[in-house]
C-alpha cells in the first residue's frame, strides 16, 4: 500500500480477512485514495457498513467506524448524518446488503437525497455465507442456492438509484481503479446521495463455481466487459451487447435532506423571534 495512505488505515488490523484474489481490497484502497485526495477532515469522517464481506472494510479504516446490521447501514448512516450534518459519512455495502435485505433503505435514502457517499461492492454473490445467489447474480449463473443456474432477474443498480432520486451515480471496477477513485471523489463533492457501484470479484464463491478461471482472468473479464460511458456514446447497440457502462452515469444535484432540515430549523427560529 502507498505509504502516504497508511494513516487512513488501521494497519495493525491487517492482513484483512478477504480471500486471495478478492477485489474488495483494491476497492477499499480506492476509497482511501479518494479521501486522501479530497481534503476531508479525517476526524469529521465516519465510515458506516452493513454485514458481509464488503462491510468488513470499515474495521480496517482509521476513522470513526460503525459496523452495523445486515442491510441497515444506510438507516444507521441516516441517523449519523442527520444528527450531525458536519460529518462526512461514507457507507460501504455489498450487493446483498444494499439491494436485498437493505433494499428499502437503499431506495429511501436515495429518495431523500441525503448527503451520503455510498460505495456498493458488487461481487455478484453472498460471499461470506458461502456463495448463495444475490439480486445481482446474473441470470443463469451458479450459486449454492441456484444449483441449476439462477432463474431470477437482476437489478440494474444505477437505474434503481437514479429512479429513486440519487443525485450522483457512477460505476467503476476493481480493474479500473483510477476511474473508481475519480468517481468516489466526484461523489464526495456532490452534496446529496452519491452511489458508486464498484464491480468486484469473488473467485472463491462465485468464480470457481462458474468456471471463470483465475482471479487474474476475472479481473480481465472486468476489463473487457466494461465500457466507459464516453466511449459508449459512439458505439452501436450491437457493440455494447453483454457490456456494462463505467464512469459517471448521472449527476443532477438538487435539494438535500439535511440542508432542508437545517433550513426548517432556521425558519422556525425566525418565526419564534
Amino acid at each position: 500500500m502507498r505509504p502516504d495512505l497508511h494513516h487512513l488505515f488501521r494497519i495493525d488490523k491487517l492482513p484483512h480477512i478477504w480471500c486471495p484474489g478478492c477485489g474488495h481490497g483494491i476497492i477499499t484502497r480506492t476509497i482511501g485514495e479518494a479521501i486522501a485526495e479530497s481534503d476531508l477532515d479525517l476526524e469529521q469522517t465516519v465510515i458506516v457498513s452493513g454485514i458481509g464481506c464488503s462491510s468488513r472494510a470499515s474495521g480496517y479504516m482509521n476513522f470513526d467506524t460503525l459496523h452495523t446490521l445486515h442491510g441497515r447501514a444506510l438507516a444507521f448512516a441516516t441517523g449519523v448524518k442527520l444528527s450531525n450534518p458536519q460529518l462526512n459519512v461514507f457507507v460501504l455495502t455489498g450487493d446483498g446488503d444494499a439491494t436485498a435485505i437493505g433494499g428499502n433503505h437503499f431506495i429511501h435514502a436515495a429518495r431523500r437525497n441525503i448527503n451520503l457517499n455510498v460505495i456498493l461492492f458488487n461481487n455478484n454473490i453472498y460471499g461470506m455465507t458461502g456463495g448463495q445467489y444475490s439480486p445481482l447474480t446474473p441470470t443463469g449463473k451458479m450459486a449454492t442456492t441456484s444449483p441449476y443456474g439462477n432463474i431470477e432477474n437482476n437489478f440494474d443498480i444505477p437505474a434503481l438509484a437514479i429512479a429513486s432520486g440519487a443525485s450522483y451515480v457512477a460505476r467503476g471496477t476493481a480493474f479500473h481503479d483510477k476511474l473508481l477513485v475519480d468517481c468516489i471523489k466526484e461523489g464526495i463533492k456532490n452534496k446529496g446521495f452519491s452511489l458508486i457501484e464498484a464491480m468486484s470479484m469473488c473467485p472463491t464463491s462465485y468464480g470457481r463455481r462458474n468456471k471463470m478461471g483465475t482471479p487474474a482472468d476475472m479481473l480481465n473479464d472486468l476489463k473487457t466487459s466494461a465500457v466507459n460511458i464516453n466511449v459508449a456514446k459512439k458505439l452501436t447497440p450491437e457493440k455494447l451487447e453483454g457490456k456494462f457502462l463505467i464512469g459517471t452515469l448521472h449527476h443532477k444535484p438538487y435539494r438535500e435532506f439535511t440542508e432542508e432540515y437545517d433550513k426548517l430549523i432556521d425558519r422556525l427560529r425566525k418565526e419564534d423571534i
Partner: peptide, 9 residues
C-alpha cells in the same frame, strides 16, 4: 437503526 446512528454522534 437511525436513532442508534444519531446516539453515536
Amino acid at each position: 437503526a437511525c436513532i442508534l446512528g444519531a446516539a453515536l454522534t
